[in-house]
Every structure is written in C-alpha cells, then in structure tokens.
C-alpha cells in the first residue's frame, strides 16, 4: 500500500519580508513515519506547522503554493480549519498538559467536537490512554491533576489527547527534546506502534532518533528541501554533499 497522504506542491512561506520556505515539493506516504531533519532555523518546523495551518496564527505570515491531504487542497477557500486540525493532530516540543484532571485532558478534544455521552467519553479516554501506553500508569488516578505527571508521561498524555479526536495524521515537533533518555525510549516505542494506524511526520534534531524511528527522512537547509529519501538510503548513501556533511556532523 503505497499511497500518498500529504502532498506539498511548490510551498513558499514568508514571515513578513523573510522567506522561511522555498518551493517545497514533498510527498509523504500514508502509514509511515517521515522524519524532517536539519539545523535550527532551516524551516522544518515551519513546514510542519503548514500541514495543520497553525502557521496562520503568526502575524504577517504569507503562504503560497498548496498542500494536499488525501488529494484535497488544505489552503482552499472552503476548507474548515477545525475539521482539518481534527484530522491532523499535533504534538509539541514542550509537554503541555492542561491544568485539569488526566481524564479531562483526554476528554477535552472529543467534548469540543460535540461528544457528551459519559460512557462514550469513558471509552475514548481508556482507548486513547492505552494506545499512548499510559493507561497502566494512570488508570487509578484519572481524576488527579495532569500537571502532576512527569514530562515523559505528560508527553504521552498529549499524544493520548491527540489520539482521542481520532486523527489520521500526527505531526510531532521535536517531541522528545525535553525528555530524559528513558522517556525518549518509551516515546520512540510508541511512535513505532502508532505507525500502523497513523501517518506520522516528526521533526527532530536528533539524527539517531530519525534513523531509529522513521521510514523516510527529509533534510532541510535554509528553507529548502535538499534531499528526501528512504531513511536507510539517506543515511547510508546521501546523494547531496550538504546532506552528507550534515549527517556526518561537519556542520549544523
């Protein structure tokens, strides 16, 4: 099954006079993990935030070109941003549980999308927490404040919160950069499990992590997609000199 989930076509993004992305053309495969690597400020996070239109929150941003999800343009006039963001969930760098109970954190998404039935919510919460490998750690204290969880647990809670709205794509913006090695390992394990059901795009500064978790890797530099290939290919036989320099640690 080699279907394209996300297709970026000549995407240019500007922050005021500064151009952050140049003509990004990239096809992201369904039910695979795609890693975006590159030095700080290279545009990989900008690209990620273009996929759920979160870039629009920044003042002075201008977006040209198009991104298609399931061959439907997301920057078309009639697109419902709420429905798009429901379909494309996002996990951020800093684990950020809402200041409410663990249960309410996970139930928040379904609630805002109109689910009121307590039994349905209970079911979604349990299923999502199980899918995020957090259920066993929190099942006895679902009513406890979520801010009491550790960073790694909070990050998995955030993933459970995203899974609860039943997305098809999950964007992850350096999800492990604030976590300790053990929590990172748990998170990577979780990503490996999630790939069966979701299309995952992950931005990471950690090249070992990209090599471990991803099927495809894209290398960004100065707002351009330099090289994009199967992960083994890109790391073993980089075609571009700049990719080689970056992955061998000669700059960045």
């Amino acid at each position: 099954m080699n279907s394209i989930k996300i297709r970026s076509h000549n995407l240019n993004v500007f922050y005021g006079p500064f151009q952050a992305l140049y003509d990004i053309n990239m096809d992201i495969e369904s039910n695979k993990v795609t890693a975006l690597i590159g030095p700080s400020g290279c545009g990989k996070s900008t690209f990620l935030r273009s996929i759920n239109r979160l870039n629009e929150l920044i003042d002075g941003v201008r977006i040209e070109g198009q991104i298609y999800i399931d061959e439907k343009p997301i920057y078309a006039r009639d697109v419902d941003v709420v429905a798009l963001r429901k379909k494309v969930g996002m996990v951020f760098q800093k684990p950020s549980a809402f200041p409410m109970s663990i249960y309410e954190n996970v139930a928040y998404g379904p609630r805002i999308h109109g689910i009121k039935d307590r039994r349905v919510l209970d079911e979604i919460v349990e299923k999502s927490l199980k899918a995020a490998n957090l259920w066993n750690e929190v099942k006895d204290r679902l009513k406890a404040p979520a801010t009491g969880l550790s960073g790694g647990q909070q990050q998995r809670l955030v993933i459970a919160r995203v899974l609860a709205v039943n997305p098809e794509v999950i964007l992850m913006d350096e999800p492990a950069s604030a976590l300790d090695p053990i929590s990172t390992a748990k998170l990577e394990e979780l990503i490996a499990e999630l790939r069966c059901n979701y299309t995952i795009v992950i931005v990471t500064h950690n090249m070992q992590q990209a090599a471990r978790v991803s099927d495809y890797t894209g290398f960004f530099l100065n707002g351009r997609l330099i090289e994009y290939n199967r992960t083994e290919e890109l790391f073993v036989n980089p075609r571009d000199k700049r990719t080689e320099d970056y992955i061998t640690g000669r700059f960045g």
Binding site: N52, L54, L57, V82, A83, L84, R85, K86, G89, M90, F92, K94, S96, F98, P99, M100, Y108, G109, R111, I112, H113, V158, R161, V162, V165
Partner: peptide, 27 residues
C-alpha cells in the same frame, strides 16, 4: 496563562472561543 495551552487547544481543532472558555479562563 501559558501560550502553549492555547496552541495545543487550537491544534486539537478547538475554536478560539472554545479555547478561551474551556482552557484559558479556567487556567
């Protein structure tokens, strides 16, 4: 109130008003 709460809420598909009433004001 930390900006992340709002961004996380919006990224879950909440509207700005839902984020204000359900996350920001309670926080």
């Amino acid at each position: 109130v930390p900006e992340e709460y709002k961004i996380n809420s919006l990224a879950l598909g909440a509207t700005h008003y839902q984020s204000i009433w359900r996350i920001i004001v309670p926080a």
